[in-house]
Write a protein that binds this DNA or RNA. Structure first.
Lengths: 145, 145
DNA sequence: TCTGAAAGCACCGCCCT
DNA sequence: AGGGCGGTGCTTTCAGA
């Protein structure tokens, strides 16, 4: 576990709000020089606390307006790696969570319409040794910054 | 729904991999000038396809090593806004999904240890008119870039 | 570890095609 | 819509405290 001080937390919070915020903009806010801020952010990347930067996309604006979680249960012999591998080959799968207990995994999917969802679920059913699925249709979502 | 061409998709893919990639770095890859790339990204922000940029953090490196989904069910009279509001006031809540059917919502939480998880779940139980919870402990996860 | 300065680059607005 | 230029600001490195 990496030790982080208050200034680092401030920097992380600012970068969570806007990952393209400049060092020269953040420097006066944390009361350090631009070079010091850069050194800290570089260090956070080096130590693996910051794993990267990314863009946030509104997929509904691109026509992918339906989201769902699919709970999957497998036969007892199915290895975890297999579960993830079969799921992420599917382009519509956004994330895969392996779970302790029942269900065995939770798959976040994003699709264009209901027919498309049906197709993706059918695909998930066919892969691995799926013994059951339950689909949770997402009506709305909120994510912390 | 916004119309997007292949170059825009390329730009989005590159920015998903690294949200701080520069226009001058992307321009030769898509075969356009720097100015043209900037105009396209500006247009994607303007049209709402790009909602922002953010940093990706490895929370386990900071000691928040346990993740779980909590399925919540409410009394029939609980409005959706109430569900989300009570959940996101809790700092440990990363995301809230409102669901069609049962359960009524799915809450993604991140905590330091099991005792902490217990505390957060107790808090969720107390808020609103929760009639039941089910906790899915996350063993591993994979997210598409 | 921080600051400050200098050199290199990217960004951004403007004009032109 | 894309290309190119010039001014401005940011980034990056290095010396010094």
């Amino acid at each position: 576990m990496t030790e982080i001080d208050d200034v680092d937390h401030q920097l992380l919070r600012m970068l969570r709000e806007d990952g393209r915020r400049t060092f020269s903009e953040m420097a006066p806010e944390v009361g350090l020089s631009v070079a010091a801020v850069k050194r800290r952010v570089d260090r956070l990347r080096q130590s693996g606390v910051i794993t990267g930067f990314t863009v946030q996309v509104d997929h509904s604006k691109l026509g992918w307006s339906i989201e769902a979680f699919v709970e999957l249960t497998y036969t007892g012999t199915t290895p975890v790696g297999e579960i993830v591998r079969t799921a992420y080959k599917t382009a519509e799968v956004q994330a895969v969570f392996t779970i302790a207990g029942a269900p065995d995994s939770l798959v976040h999917v994003r699709v264009r319409d209901i027919g498309h969802l049906q197709h993706v679920i059918d695909g998930l059913r066919r892969t691995g040794n799926v013994t059951g699925t339950k689909t949770l249709m997402i009506l709305g979502s909120w994510t912390r910054n």
